[in-house]
Design a protein around this nucleic acid. Structure first.
Lengths: 148, 148
DNA sequence: GAGAATTGATATTTATAAATGTCAATTTTT
DNA sequence: AAAAATTGACATTTATAAATATCAATTCTC
C-alpha cells in the first residue's frame, strides 16, 4: 500500500484526533457542522479521521489562530475555489448550481442534484482535497487563468 | 458634472463620514491602517471621504457585522482578486510582485516598484474600486476564467 | 490668531466568536 | 452484558478582535 493511500485511510476516532490537535472533541464536531471538514463515518454515526484530515485540520487551526481568519471567513474563502472549472461543468449545470452562484459556503456543503458532483463523493473529490490552504486557492486561480 | 464623478469627489471629513456610518472616527482610521480603505488626503494629513467610499465602507461593515468575516479574512479575500489579469502584468512583473505571490494583504497595500501599478493611483484603480463585495470577487474570477 | 477639528499613539472597554462543559441516550468494544 | 466511548442538544466559559476612550501635538477654519 502506498503512503498516499495510507494517508487517506479512516484511522482515528474523534478522541484521538482531538488529542493530536490538542483541541476538544466538541471543536471537531463544530468544524464539521460549519462544513470545514468531512470526516469518514461508519455505517453507524461514529466519525473516523485520516492523517490527511489531521493535516487539513492543522491548516484550519493556523488560519484561525495565527492568521486570525474567522470560520465564516474560511468558508467564504473556500467558496471561491473555481470547482466548476475543475469539474468542467456545463453552462446549464453552472446555472443550476448554488455552489457556482453563492459565496458563503464551500461547494461541498451543498446538495448536488442535476450536476456532475452527483456521482462524486465530496470527501474524496479533488476540489475538497487539494485546496485547504488559502495560498493554494490563490495559486489554483492563477493556474486555471493561465491554462485557458 | 456626471453623477459618477460626484460620487468620487472627496467631500466628507472623517467626523461626518463616521456619523453617516454610525461608527467612531477611530474605527475609520483602523480600517485604513488595515488597508481596507484608502481615503483621499489633502496636502495636509487630513482625510476626506467620497460617497463611494461610504458605500465601500457600508459593505465592509456588512461583511464584519452580518457575515461575521474578520478583518484578517476580508484582507485575505481581497488578496484573491486577480489584479495581474486586470492590469495585464507580464510574467516578469508577476514574478517581482508581492501582490501576485502573497495572500495576506490586498494588492493596494504593497509598494509598486518595477510594475505597471507604479504609474497608477490605487485609490482610483479599477482593482481597488470594483470589487469591494466578496460576491463581486467571485464573479470576477468566473468572468476572467470564461474570457480566456 | 482664537476656537474647532484632526492626527497618531497608547490604553481600555466591549461584544461575541470560538471553545469547552454537562448529560441523557445510543453505540461500540471486549 | 458490562464498561468505555461517542453522539447530539443545550448551556456556559473564555479568549480576543473590534471598537472606543484619552490626550498632547498639529492643522484647519473663520
Amino acid at each position: 500500500m502506498s503512503k498516499d493511500e495510507n494517508q487517506n485511510l479512516p484511522m482515528l476516532p474523534i478522541r484521538n484526533a482531538a488529542k493530536i490537535l490538542d483541541i476538544s472533541v466538541h471543536t471537531l464536531r463544530m468544524y464539521e457542522r460549519e462544513g470545514l471538514i468531512i470526516p469518514f463515518k461508519k455505517e453507524s454515526s461514529h466519525r473516523l479521521y485520516s492523517y490527511s484530515d489531521i493535516e487539513r485540520l492543522k491548516c484550519i487551526r493556523r488560519a484561525i489562530n495565527e492568521s486570525k481568519i474567522s470560520i465564516a471567513g474560511i468558508k467564504t474563502i473556500y467558496s471561491m475555489i473555481p470547482c466548476y472549472e475543475i469539474i468542467n461543468c456545463s453552462q446549464t449545470e453552472r446555472d443550476n448550481c448554488k455552489a457556482f452562484q453563492e459565496h458563503e459556503q464551500p461547494c461541498w456543503t451543498y446538495n448536488h442534484k442535476n450536476n456532475p458532483c452527483h456521482k462524486r463523493e465530496c470527501r474524496s473529490c479533488e476540489v475538497y482535497n487539494n485546496y485547504s490552504e488559502c495560498g493554494k486557492i490563490k495559486d489554483l486561480i492563477k493556474n486555471v487563468l493561465s491554462q485557458n
